[in-house]
Design a binder for these strands. Structure first.
Ligand SMILES: Cc1cn([C@H]2C[C@H](O)[C@@H](COP(=O)(O)OP(=O)(O)OP(=O)(O)O)O2)c(=O)[nH]c1=O
Ligand SMILES: [Mg+2]
Length: 332
DNA sequence: TCTCCGCTGATAACGA
DNA sequence: TCGTTATCAG
DNA sequence: GGAGA
């Protein structure tokens, strides 16, 4: 659910095919290399758009070497500009005619993994214990952890993507509740994730929250009291993962996953940079930091000895690392 | 040419 | 109960 | 596959 169409048609999609192909074949490093190509293409398109154009790359001279695009990827881009296709991509698509016919074990494992909090290891164990369907799962909840039962309980509702407007509505509900409970100006709240990147729909709602007046636990308790958070997982100081219900939606509608990242105020910028994503963009920026001898995490930018580099906004952080600031919409 | 590839929080399971 | 490791998640 | 040593 990206915010912009690709002005170059299928260029980005082509590199996505390459990335996913290597990811499926467990070559995550090469997959990330292609993720980085996409990030760089998006940045170039953004720059062209800023100059007043429509963002379309029309000649290879607009694609310099470096910043994630090397000789071979540049050659692929050239091929795309010239012919509208990339040989390697066509080969991959041709080699996998339709959705691959999987064997029964793989199918069942894929199904089990679609439950929140069930991943590879659990899915395999469950299969080996004889679980073959969602019904089996419901009949054998003793095999599940607390969190996995939660995923099962809301399985159906969590399949649906969340419309942008629903997240916007929920944001103001949360602001009203926290203001009422703890006072105006007692906190900072931003909805990050795909919402902040401008996507029309999201898989969950990612809230970044800071406050000197209350803890994450207190915030969650208030939201539970007002029936906005309906379920969640255990004790927590920094990160809450739960299930919310948007009151403006119907009774059984507007149920979705909410994550709350609760940080000290001075970590706001690094928190935003992390929580806004995208995942591949975060990995990319952190890789750059690491190569230059720093560690970047949600708490800030640090020298290797652990002392903090005094940069506090998203722009300060990426500029310090020698990167251009990109608006959330352009962060693939 | 060789080496490295993001980084952390929460929870459950394990072993002493 | 405590420290460590595995798993899942973002 | 790309970047730095
Ligand atoms: C999944 C994931 C997310 N993140 C960060 C970057 C993400 O933008 C941010 C929020 O995660 P997500 O909510 O999983 O991703 P998203 O908001 O970009 O997309 P969706 O619509 O599916 O919710 O957390 C990671 O650092 N590593 C990960 O593996
Ligand atoms: Mg999200």
């Amino acid at each position: 659910m990206s915010s912009y169409e690709d002005p170059n048609g299928n260029l980005i999609e082509s590199f996505r095919v390459l990335a996913n192909y290597y990811r499926e074949n467990k070559d995550t490093i090469r997959a990330r290399a292609y993720d980085n190509v996409i990030i760089r293409i998006k940045q170039i398109q953004h720059n062209l758009r800023t100059k007043g154009g429509n963002g379309k790359i029309t000649e290879i001279s607009q694609v310099p070497l470096g910043d994630g695009i090397g000789k071979k990827s540049r050659e692929k881009i050239k091929q795309y500009i010239d012919t509208g296709r990339i040989r390697q991509v066509e080969d991959i698509l041709a080699s996998q005619p339709k959705p691959e016919p999987k064997n029964e074990r793989e199918q069942v494992i894929a199904l089990l993994k679609s439950v929140w909090n069930i991943a590879d290891a659990s899915a395999k164990k469950l299969y080996d214990s004889g679980i073959r369907s969602m019904q089996d799962l419901k009949d054998h909840q003793d095999l599940l952890t607390k969190d996995q039962r939660l995923g099962l309980k809301y399985y159906e509702q969590l399949q649906k993507p969340i419309p942008r407007d629903e997240i916007r509505a929920m944001k103001y509900v949360i602001i009203v509740i926290l203001s009422h409970e703890f006072g105006r100006n007692s906190f900072n709240l931003e909805v990050a994730g795909s919402f902040r990147r401008g996507c029309k729909q999201s898989g969950d709602m990612d809230c970044l929250l800071t406050s000197n007046k209350f803890s994450l636990l207190q915030a969650v308790q208030a939201l539970v009291k007002w029936d906005v958070i309906v379920d969640g997982t255990g004790q927590r100081t920094e990160k809450f993962m739960g299930v919310a219900h948007c009151p403006s939606a119907g009774k059984d509608k507007g149920i979705f996953r909410v994550d709350i990242e609760f940080l000290p105020e001075n970590e706001w910028g690094s928190g935003l940079l992390y929580f806004t994503g995208s995942q591949s963009y975060v990995i990319r920026v952190r890789a750059v930091a690491k190569r230059k001898g720093y560690i970047l995490n949600q708490h800030g930018l640090f020298y290797k000895n652990g002392t903090r580099v005094p940069v506090y906004t998203e722009a300060e952080i990426v500029n310090y690392l020698g990167l251009d600031y990109l608006p959330p919409e352009a962060r693939y």
